[in-house]
Simulated assay, not measured.
Amino acid sequence: MASSTSNSSSTVPLTPPNTLKRKQQHNVESLNVSPLKPKLLLHDLLQYEKLTPTSSPEKKSHKLTSSKNKRKLNGSIRRPIPNSTLSLDCYPMIKPNEKSHNKYLHCILNECQNIVVVAGAGISTYAGIPDFRSKNSGLYSKNKCNKSLMDLNMIYSNESMTLKFNELMVSLYSKSINAKITPFHQLLDKLAEQKRLKRVYTQNIDSLETKLPHVMETQINKTKGNYPILVQLHGNISETRCNKCNNIRKFDPNRLQTSENPKGRLIPSCLECEELESVRSIAGLRSKGVGTIRPTITLYNEVHNKGDAIADIINYDTKLKSIDLLIIVGTMLSIPHVKKLCQNMAHSLKNGRRRKGHVIFVSNEPPTQSILNTFKDTLDMIVIGDCQTLYNYID
């Protein structure tokens, strides 16, 4: 009997024992997610190697009952050296120097209680919505106009530019309403359902986040602290706004003139303004003019119509001591104010008393030297690979 016990403890079983329950797969069909291929995760293998009664997955709770437990939980996460790199393409191989990195990523995604995400176009390309700056597939390269196609001073400078802008907006709108949410969007919804997602700052205008039942609210309440989870930094493509009366309507692609719709208008007029003018004319009142509409997106050389309210939310989150994880994902931070937002929040998580938050940068390409200089030693981990893979890290 003694020799039998010795042999069983000296080797690691190739498969988990019968007493260990397998983790149930997330039900992603409820939100029409196209899941990635199932993969054997490195943290699973690590759990099989060192299994204790207190680390059983089914006993895990995302809700902490006291600050004492919270300190103990954070203390169990072994933080890597700054700017450590983890490749998500290493599966199913296990590299010795990446075992601890995988365990760290798994821990913070499952144990951090107040998470802020700053997202870019990289989280939506999986859904078939192209980004702007990719050399071969980006919208700028296809339209050959660079960022001038999103510049307020340029898109209405001549009819040719306005026509290209209209075609771009109609194309983006069509892709957005037909797109299914991605595994990463499902991850966001899961975190929101667990009450662990504090905020999502998105640069995307595709409004895919509004399809998530636990994230969808976008109405900004001015009451301090009573803010929505989702903050759209650059507006969205699903609505139009009048430049005169500020009336919001659902985007109607049939009203915009394109090469396939010559009956539309290059610059559509506001239907509410037209109706008001008709009433004023019948009443014998003087004309006040009719406004024009375009999608509720923020262009270059334009002030965000909700800029002050968004600034209040950013200031509130930056000063909030409970934030313990910042995820920068799908963006190379080429927009100055977004880079500043991430820099200030990362600095806040790393400085001051009890500020021991975690900061990770997730992208399918390495960060530029400019990004490394911006964050210096505040990045705990640089995760290189498809951000959709992160969905598999959530228990």
Results as ranks from 00 to 15, higher is better:
377 D>A: 08
53 P>Q: 13
388 Q>A: 07
9 S>D: 13
133 R>W: 04
135 K>M: 14
150 M>P: 00
209 E>W: 07
22 R>I: 13
19 T>A: 13
284 G>M: 05
207 S>K: 05
34 S>I: 11
62 H>C: 11
119 A>G: 09
341 L>H: 03
250 K>N: 10
41 L>Q: 12
368 T>C: 09
192 A>V: 03
116 V>E: 04
361 F>C: 08
378 T>E: 09
190 K>R: 14
84 S>Q: 05
357 G>E: 02
365 E>C: 10
333 L>T: 00
30 S>D: 15
252 D>V: 03
100 S>E: 15
269 S>F: 12
63 K>E: 12
20 L>F: 14
195 K>R: 15
242 C>N: 03
335 I>V: 15
220 I>H: 08
335 I>Y: 04
149 L>P: 00
92 P>W: 05
205 I>Y: 01
176 S>V: 00
47 Q>S: 11
180 K>W: 08
261 N>M: 06
82 P>C: 01
26 H>R: 09
91 Y>R: 08
337 H>P: 00
361 F>P: 02
160 S>D: 14
132 F>P: 01
253 P>A: 02
336 P>V: 02
202 T>R: 03
322 S>I: 10
333 L>Q: 00
14 L>K: 14
97 N>L: 13
100 S>Q: 15
299 L>W: 02
292 T>G: 01
342 C>G: 04
86 L>H: 00
355 R>Y: 07
107 C>M: 11
370 S>K: 13
346 A>T: 05
7 N>H: 15
187 L>P: 00
153 N>E: 11
370 S>M: 06
220 I>L: 08
172 L>P: 03
60 K>Q: 14
225 G>L: 06
385 G>F: 01
178 N>I: 02
8 S>D: 10
98 E>P: 01
112 C>A: 11
11 T>E: 15
317 D>I: 03
201 Y>A: 03
308 D>R: 12
294 R>V: 02
52 T>V: 12
129 I>Y: 00
34 S>L: 12
323 I>S: 01
350 K>R: 06
198 K>L: 15
79 R>T: 10
